[in-house]
Design a protein around this nucleic acid. Structure first.
Lengths: 198, 198
DNA sequence: CAGCAAAGAGAACGATCGTCCGCAATATAT
DNA sequence: ATATATTGCGGACGATCGTTCTCTTTGCTG
């Protein structure tokens, strides 16, 4: 069998995770099966499991990869905007755009993973919680900046802002995935604007 | 003809579905397995599948049962309030209470099923869509009533109201299931109130 | 009372699950 | 150049998946 160079090996692992994210966004992290993923990659089950050790570690690596893609898609394009309200608005723009043209066929991966594992204790649950906590904390920090600078009214709870914007995004993802109607995204963006335009 | 009396048969089937809903709320409709459910009920796999015909029909029956429970928990206690804003507020109250003390261990079943099947075409997807469409239409109708009677400002889009309230509930369910922190519910209720107090 | 319809148990099926072992081939290090 | 470590394949394992078959039990019906 042809052996591959080091860069190709690295690329191979990244290709593996890319396929894993695609698959899991549709069938869930539990439906992400060693056999199915191996088939899709044209490799053997044992070769695939050798890369990650176990299904659970494959799930964790896939979740990490999806979280990276999410941050790249939603936070990175907004990070050039000045902190506070402008950046929050840029995040909302990028977020809604991401929901409308998701990098994965099954919609927002984090939403799927969060709902799938929110009631099942274990390492995957802990990882999902960490990712979500970090993202909400980021939103909360931007909201705090906006409040301190007077862009949002004093007395506003930054946690409320983070929670509401996140809920609107999750709801928009569900609605859009279910009905494929872009109006869900517009509604979400409008509701986000209402939260930020006080 | 039924082996047992009519009420006992109904009770047995209802007990089966009750266990199915409990189980599926945690592990999902796909994780709802014939073998696991049969074990939990102390009966054989063949006996269980004989009641429904196939796993898919078991999933559909379970979804229907969960939708009934949801309507009983959220809409029924609010249905005595006068139509319009008062009823919308009563629905929000009951909804948040339902999320905080869900009849199933895994949180809102409909949210789980919706996210699980939103990207997988098939009868279950269609059933989930029907349930959600009906529920959103109900919310929308109440919002329309509130607008017509002047309880909500003219020009308000009733679909926006329905979407936003639903998104807040879905977001609250995720957040609460993930962190078991009741503040998520209070935030959701406050954000709902903000939508309804314009 | 005799006969029938239905329910459920038990067992088996092919398929797939996650995991592990042994072996061959390759890359790296000495 | 030789030794070592890593990679991946083929194959097998026990378990469980959904489904289907036969057979027994049991209540209803005529």
């Amino acid at each position: 069998m042809p052996r591959r160079s080091a860069t190709e090996v690295a690329g191979s692992r990244s290709q593996t995770l890319a396929a894993a994210v695609q698959l899991a966004s549709v069938v869930g992290l539990e439906g992400l099966t060693i056999g199915r993923l191996a088939d899709r990659l044209g490799m053997s089950k044992s070769g695939l499991v050798g890369r990650f050790g176990s299904k659970e570690q494959l799930q964790l690596a896939t979740l990490d990869q999806a979280a990276d893609i999410f941050r790249r898609s939603v936070y990175k394009p907004a990070s050039t905007a000045p902190p506070g309200l402008a950046r929050l608005n840029a995040i909302c723009d990028a977020w809604v755009a991401y929901l409308g043209r998701p990098p994965f066929p099954g919609g927002c991966f984090l939403t799927t993973a969060m709902v799938e594992f929110d009631a099942r204790p274990g390492p995957v649950n802990a990882a999902v919680r960490t990712v979500m906590r970090g993202w909400l904390a980021l939103l909360e920090r931007e909201a705090s900046t906006a409040i301190e600078s007077g862009e949002l009214p004093a007395g506003t709870d930054p946690k409320d802002v983070a929670f509401t914007i996140n809920a609107l995004a999750v709801g928009a993802n569900c609605d859009f995935q279910l009905n494929r109607n872009p109006s869900s995204l517009q509604r979400a963006r409008r509701a986000m604007a209402a939260v930020l335009d006080r």
